[in-house]
């Protein structure tokens, strides 16, 4: 669920830390760290602000099981 920063793609610009509405991402010792992952809303501000595509918010990790078929499909 919480934002994750790929350090290989991150250019340390700090925009995610600058604009995170929840103050959960902080610059720490030259790196940018998701310091309070349990307080992430999953709003996606960090994803929008990142210029290098280094930040992702994975809502479920790996894809989940296939969804339930719709009622119409089930009765077709």
């Amino acid at each position: 669920m919480p934002a994750q920063i790929d350090s290989r793609r991150c250019n340390r610009c700090g925009r995610c830390a600058q604009y995170c509405p929840g103050d959960i991402i902080h610059p720490v010792g030259g790196e940018v760290v998701v310091l309070y992952p349990g307080e992430c809303w999953g709003c996606g501000t960090c994803v929008l602000e990142c210029r290098t595509g280094a930040v992702t918010v994975s809502l479920f990790g790996a894809p989940q099981a296939a969804p339930a078929p719709s009622r119409k499909q089930a009765t077709a």
Binding site: M1, P21, G22, D23, G38, E39, C40, W41, G42, C43
Partner: peptide, 9 residues
């Protein structure tokens, strides 16, 4: 805990 519909902040 913060996975809310509107901003938890």
């Amino acid at each position: 805990a913060f996975d809310l519909v509107y901003s938890p902040y």
